[in-house]
Design a protein around this nucleic acid. Structure first.
Length: 260
DNA sequence: ATGGTCGTGCAACGA
């Protein structure tokens, strides 16, 4: 399985389908589709044998799950998911489905923008409610392989950014954000890709600006957090850095996890 | 050089 912030599914349909054809993944949690459901290029994926569940409300956010091992019990949003905007409403940042016996969530955690921005408060509240929902799922069905996949917009360790000095006073590395991430781990989830992709300096995202990718100046902000039952089945993981190269690449690379 | 790059949708906003 894999998680990938594609930064527009319509702008990148051909790159995504080409990647699926060569990567042989059964399930992909996709974030930032940047389209409404009616605009989603469903047939491009069904033609390759994938079922599709997408939730998009506008040109912002948008999450999807692609699966060629079944896709059932689709759930839009998680219980108590905080909202944003005027009027306050849940955004298209979470979709869940059961694929080949694994409960998969595709999550696009709010960016936070700046430490003094209301969006940062929203981000922390979103993470706390996700932790509460996740704890509930683990308690409800401890035997269920469960994967929280997505763009968490948090670099949990200093080695997850190229230079901590560049992030002084910025989001993604603040203590409250890192505490919120670790609360998910304390709840029983495991960052299952990290042992197979050890840092420092191993990243999943590189800004388009300032030649960040060729200069190897990135961030590790995309994760698969596995329940104990899922973590027990992980046999490997990799970050597909090649997919960040060339014209028309997303600013995020896919994170791939192999399961037994 | 107070920007630099993208995507969406057509001005400006989000990342």
């Amino acid at each position: 399985m894999a998680t990938w912030n594609v930064n527009s599914v319509r702008a990148r349909t051909e790159r995504i389908t080409a990647w699926l054809a060569r990567s042989e993944v059964d399930v992909v949690a996709v974030q930032e589709t940047k389209c409404k459901d009616a605009q989603f290029p469903t047939s491009a994926f069904t033609e390759l044998g994938y079922e599709v569940a997408h939730y998009g409300l506008s040109q912002w956010n948008g999450v999807a799950i692609l699966s060629r091992v079944g896709l059932d019990d689709v759930e839009i949003g998680f219980p108590e998911q905080p909202g944003w905007g005027e009027p306050v409403a849940a955004e298209a940042r979470a979709i869940g489905a059961t694929c080949g016996g694994v409960r998969v969530w595709s999550l696009y955690i709010p960016n936070g923008r700046e430490l003094d921005d209301p969006h940062y408060v929203y981000k922390l509240e979103w993470l706390e409610k996700l932790r509460a929902a996740g704890s509930g799922w683990l308690a409800e069905r401890p035997e269920q392989p469960l994967a929280l996949c997505g763009d968490f917009n948090i670099a949990p360790e200093d080695g997850d950014v190229w230079d901590m000095a560049a992030f002084e006073g910025r989001t993604h590395v603040s203590k409250p954000e890192r505490d919120a991430f670790h609360a998910l781990l304390d709840a029983g989830f495991t960052d299952v890709a990290r042992p197979y992709t050890p840092g420092p300096g191993v990243f999943t995202y590189w800004d388009y600006q300032q030649l960040r990718f060729p200069k190897r100046e990135g961030m590790r902000i995309d994760f698969v957090l596995g329940s104990p039952a899922l973590a027990a089945r992980v046999t490997g993981a990799r970050i597909d850095r090649e997919e960040r190269k060339g014209k028309g690449a997303s600013d995020h690379a896919p994170v791939i996890v192999e399961l037994s």
